[in-house]
Design a protein around this nucleic acid. Structure first.
Lengths: 118, 118
DNA sequence: ACATCATATAGTGTGATGCACAGTATGTCA
DNA sequence: TGACATACTGTGCATCACACTATATGATGT
């Protein structure tokens, strides 16, 4: 109940929260070559929403950083650009996974040690 | 083994990742009134590093958004500014906790479903 | 047959936000 | 003199969200 803009404010924070996870999620998914449009759907199915105008620039950026490589598949009706991790990307993915585990555990511990607000 | 700037790059991503969690961590900690300098240490102990020049502006921002309230304690040698959640801040905290649970579960599921890179 | 619209697919430009980096300020205790 | 406790500021950079553009295909309407 109470304040209606709780939702509004929380939405912003949640965006911030997911921001950092997106790279990890994308790299994890791109162990299997996938094209952008499809990736959006797959991530959404897993519960991680990301919009086209966020994902496409991200893919290009990660490619620029050497984490991904891409190739066009022009066999179907519409050409699709498939992205997948480079070896370097795989190394970074492994590191990020490890870091995620540490950090998320810390977070959970912190939340556990705090009196429940409910 | 391979590329030395993995660490460098990962560091940046990790920063991004923690970025969104910081608000949650701070709100959770501030269920108990605490002053900034101490909070830095407490969070570090839990495994969540945040620097002074990041935390202080954050506290002021959250106060400005109505999530926190502060008061000076001038009894000791140096005056300390204690922050704690407002009722509104508690509501937001509850929401953020819930969101964190959902999102982190999604993330873990995604990572589980992906072949291990190691 | 023709117009029209939805969907699949990829992209760009710009403003706002929020951190990191480096630095300031001050009082206390060794 | 110098380390630590304590709080704060100013600026640049990186990155997302929002709102677009673009095109080709297949479906739907008349």
């Amino acid at each position: 109940m109470s304040n209606p803009n709780v939702q509004e404010l929380v939405a912003g924070f949640v965006l911030e929260m997911r921001r950092g996870m997106i790279v990890l999620a994308v790299l994890a998914k791109l162990e299997t070559p996938t094209y952008g449009y499809s990736l959006i759907g797959e991530l959404a199915d897993t519960g991680i929403a990301i919009e086209a105008n966020t994902l496409y620039p991200l893919l290009r950026r990660l490619e620029g950083q050497g984490l991904l490589e891409s190739s066009w598949n022009t066999e179907g009706a519409k050409p699709r650009k498939y992205y997948t991790n480079t070896t370097f990307g795989q190394e970074v993915l492994a590191e990020l996974k490890a870091q995620w585990n540490v950090t998320s555990k810390s977070m959970n511990k912190l939340l556990r040690d705090t009196r429940s607000t409910t």
